[in-house]
Design a protein around this nucleic acid. Structure first.
Length: 1090
RNA sequence: GGGCCUGUAGCUCAGGUGGUUAGAGCGCACGCCUGAUAAGCGUGAGGUCAGAGGUUCAACUCCUCUCAGGCCCA
């Protein structure tokens, strides 16, 4: 066979076969090699963590990545596609921790939750950090095979043979280099960060962990009344007190300030019973705090804005901890975050124990008091509560407050408070020593670089990401964990001010004065054995215990994947920055940020990266979530998670990929509905397949091949020239859409072309042409369809890489993935022809409607039809033959506005009228609609006319009016928007006979099909019916015989009693008795031996 | 509480710079075709464009607010 048919198998089986062929040919490697010397199009792969199973949302992101990479590769770029793995971090640790819990529980014969309650840190330290990290390193690869298999199955082409791995020594060394470089620029600093912290587990929790552990609990609700002081810090003659609310009395020990909202109104009240002192709180909170009937007991004696309170001094509730020398204390500060929703509108500030408090502390230079240790207990030296867990100390603290006459009111209330998901201990918000990259120092540069990024959709760049950058705070990069890139900072144990940041393994070896051992491992705990005497002479340099944020790892991949700057400088110079990256919207604060922050702080330490340069990525496509069919987020607990393998098996990767990309813009949350896959992508692929298998290959296999005998395009029929013009247009548009990172419009464009233009119109109108072997028209049709299919395969290849490759190979003998995306010399677009065909198709629709109304089936020929189109009909008229055969009408005429069959109507063009006439537009429009025929003819001829509206003359130009021609007369008329057809439903006896003949042909063809005859089988046919029917067959005998491939046609009397008795049918291959419009019709046929 | 996104036919989605029967596919109904056939084609019915105000001769489109859903942050 010249053109092998696609196998009649499931999409899954077909695709697996193609995958095997690709593997066999090493097609990915070949496609890379073919373009190795071309201009690069740089793609960065955001590294996934392989210790979880890949889900359908990963298929989504990977489809987008893959399709743009394929497109650029087909355009001729070299597209390096290095895989990567994110291997450090909390998810990995948690996975291993859970394993340890299970093992320990088994050993002790208890439930794992019992073990969890002991706290994470203890368990890890019990097995030892070395063993823990060894298991982390292993755990990372738990699902690596599945990731690779799924990538393979979905045709996500990526170089998995040489991936970058963030825990590798080389990668870690590059990250160290980056940190050292930042340190040299003064951008690596120490500070504090308020973190949710579990005192029992001895660890800070990530926001994701915190979110898992909210519980409804009863907590204290405490109001204290603090004395205002004068500027010198003395109590005034008349006592004035300010009311402060807190739910964490233990933090009052560390109070350094009060915050009020500058715009909020605060009231000062005095008891009606004649007390001398006053109390101050937010006016809006008076009823809430003092009771709805407060006015019975209190007089308002003053009112002031929060801004007036700012700067005032007060006396703190407890003086157990001395203030440090540095920092202001016991002062009221204005803060926007204060609300009058609850409490007193006055917020107590303990900068060591709250994120808002800490930030306010930084803004106002407040003192920092932290009398609590890592176990969550008050430190030695604090009176009354030393050694107590802070929450336990609340009771004693309340007693003391009461003794000191500071306590105003103490109750409790229920609220949701975060607890440790491991052990259930309430979390503390706690200031931990932390290392920061001073991204605030480069905020302008971050914004400037972000401004150069082409974000898709653009809102992410200006909104979500841009806003976040504008409010950027320093990036806390250290983590008190175990499995991560160790922070390469060594500190003098006798002088914390003396620090060294190590930027390479060579530097480390130089410090310790000997080569690193062969089995050197930069991870904890091994790295911590390296110490050296401090340069200052006293003390020992020891590494800080922290590891770094894994986002720092992934953000370092542009250079660390190449072990830059230790190796591959020229590779990084050629492959930095990225032209394209693509990740989910959840990466805004993740990878998108870490890439930008690291690149910006490193500046010209990277190639092409001085401060006026681009971001590390030029174009970003952001995809949104994949939801279930009901728009719900997929989650394990809901049980609505889609297994990608099941989906592949049922629909195939092509259909899934097409669906994911085409169903809506990728940055809109996507509903994953398997029925929708079947109905859209699946159906489309079936059509595509049918056009190749069912039309092209089936008939081309009778002997057509591309060749010199094919007529040149200019000599082919208009239908061919039309589809080739469409093809060129689509090729251009799809290519442009992909250049602009709009995968959705691109996919829809090709699909629509294939379905609407090729299948619904071109093939439909050309069908008969494919049967007539080796005529010029036949060759033209095949040559045209071949071209259309080949180019469509290429256009579709990035989206549906399997079926397109299968078809492309059958058509051309070569893989579509080695082809060029666009042609060098496409057929020029013929605008006029396309417009004419559009007109024609509109007319065909109207004509079908007219036949419907007339109730005459298409098989019955009709004498004539008149058509009108809004514009020039000259070119459409030349296509009239298509209309005649499509509608089975003998004569198609196009009539113009001068024709008697046409009446004219005017429709106002509001766009132009509105500009000229403003408020009077509606009146003028009404007048225009009612114009008499003679004026309409003038306008139709292109001349302006003058009309009178509201006693004023108005000049109406031809462009102000759309003239609509309407077909009229006795015929069946259908019209719409300036198009119209008038169908003559007269059926003459001759036409009637022809209709019957066609009916017979149709019946015979059906019978052939049912009898499973091959399309080329010759037959002997016998027909019997009533007089009129047989007369019709006789009149069209030749045509019938030709169409049904009958070598003999026996009619009525000629066959005698063939149909009369039982058993007579034995000599026939098939017989059928039926009726045509109530007339009996009997058919019989026999296959001729050839 | 803040930022961003979304809300158009039963479902999934289109609807430059505001312009007068609001479109498509699927589904549904009716019909056609029968040499793509467990295919193909046509016609039709479905919409207070989430809601309320405002700007305008004219608002799905621009502005404000409200409601619902989502994501991120606090």
């Amino acid at each position: 066979m010249l053109y092998p048919l696609l196998p009649d198998s499931t999409a899954d089986a077909l695709e697996r076969g193609i995958l095997a062929q690709w593997d066999d040919e090493q097609l990915f490697a070949a496609s890379q090699a073919a373009r190795a010397t071309a201009k690069p199009f740089v793609f960065f792969e955001g590294p996934p963590t392989a210790n979880g199973r890949p889900g359908i949302h990963h298929v989504f992101a990977r489809t987008i990545k893959d399709l743009f990479c394929r497109h650029r590769a087909m355009q001729g770029f070299y597209v390096p596609r290095k895989a990567g793995w994110d291997t450090h971090g909390l998810p990995v640790e948690i996975e291993v921790e859970k394993e340890l819990q299970r093992e320990e529980a088994e050993r002790q014969g208890v439930d794992p939750s019992e073990i969890a309650k002991l706290g994470g840190k203890q368990l890890i330290e019990q097995v030892g950090v070395a063993e823990f990290n060894r298991r982390c390193r292993e755990s990372v690869w738990k699902y690596r095979g599945e990731w690779e298999k799924l990538s393979h199955r979905t045709a996500y082409w990526l170089d998995y043979d040489n991936p970058y791995v963030t825990y590798s020594h080389d990668f870690v060394e590059s990250v160290w280099w980056a940190l050292r470089t930042m340190h040299d620029k003064g951008l690596l600093t120490r500070g504090h960060k308020i973190l949710p912290y579990c005192a029992r587990c001895g660890t800070a929790l990530s926001s994701h962990e915190v979110a898992q552990g909210y519980d409804e609990v009863e907590d204290p609700s405490v109001y204290v009344a603090l004395d205002l002081l004068d500027a010198e810090g003395n109590a005034p003659a008349t006592r004035r007190r300010i009311l402060v609310w807190t739910t964490t009395p233990w933090t009052l020990v560390s109070n350094t300030a009060l915050a009020v909202h500058p715009d909020l109104v605060y009231a000062e009240l005095r008891k009606k019973t004649g007390a001398e002192w006053t109390i101050i709180l937010a006016e809006a909170r008076v009823p809430g705090v003092l009771g709805a009937d407060w006015a019975d007991r209190w007089d308002v004696v003053g009112s002031m804005k929060g801004s007036a309170l700012a700067g005032r001094r007060y006396r703190r509730p407890l003086d157990w901890v001395p203030y440090p020398e540095q920092g202001r204390h016991e002062i009221i500060v204005p803060e926007e975050f204060v609300s009058a929703e609850d409490g007193s509108g006055v917020v107590h500030m303990a900068p060591a124990f709250g994120a808002d408090d800490y930030a306010a502390g930084q803004r106002h230079g407040l003192a920092f008091v932290q009398p609590v240790d890592a176990r969550g207990e008050f430190v030695e030296g604090v009176p009354e509560v030393a050694g107590q867990f802070v929450k336990k100390a609340d009771a004693r603290i309340l007693e003391v407050l009461k003794e000191r006459d500071v306590l105003w009111k103490a109750t409790t209330f229920m609220h949701a408070y975060p607890h440790c998901w491991r052990c259930g201990t309430p979390l503390l918000y706690y200031a931990r020593g932390s290392w920061f990259v001073r991204t605030t120092a480069v905020r302008e540069a971050l914004l400037q670089r972000n401004g150069l990024v082409n974000w898709n959709p653009s809102e992410v760049g200006t909104g979500r990401f841009g806003e976040w950058l504008s409010n950027n705070v320093d990036w806390a990069i250290s983590r008190d964990r175990y499995w991560g890139t160790p922070l390469p900072v060594w500190v003098n144990d006798e002088d914390p001010a003396e620090i060294e940041v190590i930027g390479s393994y060579a530097d480390l070896a130089a410090r310790i004065g000997r080569p690193l051992p062969d089995d050197f491992d930069p991870h904890k705990p091994h790295i911590d054995q390296y110490t050296w005497p401090a340069k200052s002479g006293t003390g020992t340099m020891r590494r800080v215990p922290e590891v770094i944020d894994t986002w720092f790892d992934s953000g370092s991949m542009p250079f660390a994947q190449w072990h830059y700057p230790f190796e591959n400088r020229e590779v990084v110079a050629a492959q930095y920055p990225a032209d394209f990256i693509c990740e989910g919207v959840d990466q805004t604060r993740g990878w998108f940020y870490s890439l930008l922050a690291i690149a910006t702080t490193l500046g010209d330490a990277l190639p092409h990266n001085a401060n006026d340069q681009a971001a590390p990525y030029r174009h970003v496509v952001v995809n949104d979530l994949v939801l279930d069919a009901n728009g719900q987020k997929m989650s394990k607990s809901k049980g609505n998670v889609v297994n990608p393998w099941d989906v592949m098996e049922r629909h195939g990767a092509d259909a899934v990929r097409l669906f994911l990309v085409a169903s809506s813009q990728v940055w809109v949350p996507r509903r994953f509905d398997e029925n929708a896959i079947r109905e859209t992508a699946g159906r489309f692929l079936l059509t595509f397949r049918n056009v190749y298998n069912g039309i092209f290959a089936q008939y081309a296999n009778f002997g057509w091949q591309p060749g010199a005998a094919d007529p040149p395009v200019a000599e082919r029929p208009a239908l061919d020239r039309w589809i080739l013009s469409r093809l060129t247009r689509v090729e251009r548009e799809v290519n442009q859409h992909l250049d602009q990172y709009d995968a959705t419009l691109a996919a829809r464009r090709v699909m629509q072309f294939m379905d609407d233009d090729v299948s619904k119109w071109y093939v439909r109108q050309s069908r008969a042409r494919f049967y007539d072997v080796d005529s010029a028209d036949n060759r033209a049709a095949f040559a045209t369809l071949h071209e259309v299919l080949v180019v469509t395969c290429r256009l579709l290849a990035p989206f549906a890489p399997f079926i397109t490759d299968a078809v492309h190979r059958r058509l051309t003998g070569t893989s579509v993935h080695l082809a060029s995306y666009t042609r060098d010399q496409p057929t020029p677009v013929d605008e006029a022809l396309e417009t004419a065909m559009d007109d024609l198709r509109t007319l065909a629709g109207l004509a079908h409607a007219a036949r419907d109304v007339a109730d005459v089936k298409v098989r019955q020929p009709l004498p004539s039809m008149q058509c009108v189109v809004p514009g020039d009909a000259t070119l459409v008229a030349t296509l009239g033959g298509l209309l005649a055969s499509e509608l089975n009408v003998k004569q198609v005429e196009f009539v113009s506005s001068t024709d008697a069959l046409v009446s004219l109507e005017a429709k106002a063009n509001f766009r132009t009228l509105g500009k000229k006439f403003g408020k009077e537009t509606p009146q003028v429009a009404e007048a225009v609609t009612g114009l008499p025929v003679d004026l309409l003819r003038q306008l139709a001829a292109g001349n302006p006319v003058t009309i009178t509206v509201a006693n004023a003359e108005r000049l109406i130009a031809p462009e102000d009016v759309a003239i609509i021609r309407r077909a009229s007369g006795a015929a069946v008329v259908q019209e719409n928007g300036g198009y119209g057809v008038a169908l003559d439903p007269t059926i003459t006896p001759e036409l009637r006979a022809e209709g019957l003949a066609r009916e017979v042909i149709s019946r015979v063809q059906r019978l052939r099909k049912e009898s499973q005859l091959a399309v080329s089988d010759r037959i002997t046919l016998a027909v019997a019916g009533d007089e009129e029917l047989e007369g019709a067959v006789a009149a069209h005998r030749r045509r019938i015989a030709d169409e049904v491939l009958a070598v003999r046609l026996l009619l009525g009397r000629e066959v005698g009693s063939l149909f009369s008795g039982p058993g007579d049918g034995a000599m026939w291959t098939a017989t059928q008795a039926g009726d045509v419009d109530g007339r009996p019709l009997q058919l019989a046929l026999t296959r001729e031996q050839s």
